[in-house]
């Protein structure tokens, strides 16, 4: 699965960069992505309806399932606080950028608005990268460390794009966890970015 991800994403980036695709294809690219994502998430929904085991992970856990998104949020924030200076950012700048948890479209707009275009571009780019790393790392994290690591790596994207990857690598076992975690992240991101941006100098 990881190999398919690398080949599909990598060839897309290279072909897109080379600019050899016809104009009509590029014009309709967003539509293609939306339609494909809709169909795939509908497929995940179908699996959730048909596969009784899909909810087991959550039913067995009960409310501590919320620890998954909470640790994902806390871990990403703590890592940004500690290591942002290695990459030329202040700790608060780092946390602001990391607080998008992969939701790059929102990160780009919101951080640009609150903290200026320079940090906005970093937020946009690093969250695109986060989504890519979540795709690439999902299978390895799942096999080596378990489901929580793979779901948490996806951050907010675990309820849409990464959800589809999680569903594939786990034969549906991680779909429900991904939805819960991604949903909580998605609710928190629009609150966390403005919260941290207030502390920017």
């Amino acid at each position: 699965m990881t190999r398919s991800v690398v080949i599909a994403l990598g060839s897309g980036i290279i072909i897109g960069y080379l600019g050899i695709l016809p104009e009509w294809f590029l014009d309709n690219l967003d539509l293609l992505i939306q339609v494909a994502l809709f169909a795939l998430v509908a497929g995940v929904g179908m699996g959730l309806a048909r596969n009784r085991g899909a909810w087991q992970a959550i039913r067995a856990l009960g409310w501590p399932v919320l620890l998954l998104p909470l640790t994902g949020l806390a871990g990403g924030t703590a890592a940004a606080l500690l290591f942002a200076p290695l990459f030329g950012l202040s700790p608060v700048q780092g946390i602001t950028v990391a607080s998008a948890f992969g939701w790059y479209s929102l990160a780009g707009v919101l951080v640009t608005d609150l903290a200026g275009p320079a940090l906005g571009i970093t937020a946009f780019l690093s969250n695109i990268m986060r989504e890519i790393f979540a795709f690439l790392g999902a299978e390895t994290l799942y096999r080596r460390l378990g489901g929580w690591a793979a779901v948490a790596a996806g951050g907010a994207t675990s309820m849409d794009t990464t959800l589809v990857v999680l569903n594939q690598i786990s034969a549906g076992k991680l779909s429900a966890l991904g939805l819960v975690s991604g949903f909580i992240h998605t609710l928190c991101v629009p609150l966390l970015i403005p919260f941290w941006a207030r502390f920017l100098g």
């Binding site: 620890l67 998954l68 640790t71 994902g72 949020l73 806390a74 871990g75 990403g76 924030t77 703590a78 890592a79 940004a80 500690l82 290591f83 942002a84 290695l86 990459f87 030329g88 950012l89 780092g94 950028v97 990391a98 948890f101 571009i121 970093t122 780019l125 690093s126 969250n127 695109i128 990268m129 986060r130 890519i132 790393f133 979540a134 790392g137 994290l141 460390l145 378990g146 489901g147 929580w148 690591a149 793979a150 779901v151 948490a152 790596a153 951050g155």
Partner: peptide
């Protein structure tokens, strides 16, 4: 900004994954 963006992506992804894994 590649190094900065990739670096921030790596550490935030790893931080989320590792703390979630630890608690699991």
């Amino acid at each position: 900004l590649g190094v900065q963006a990739v670096g921030m992506a790596v550490i935030s992804t790893a931080g989320s994954a590792l703390l979630a894994h630890l608690v699991e």
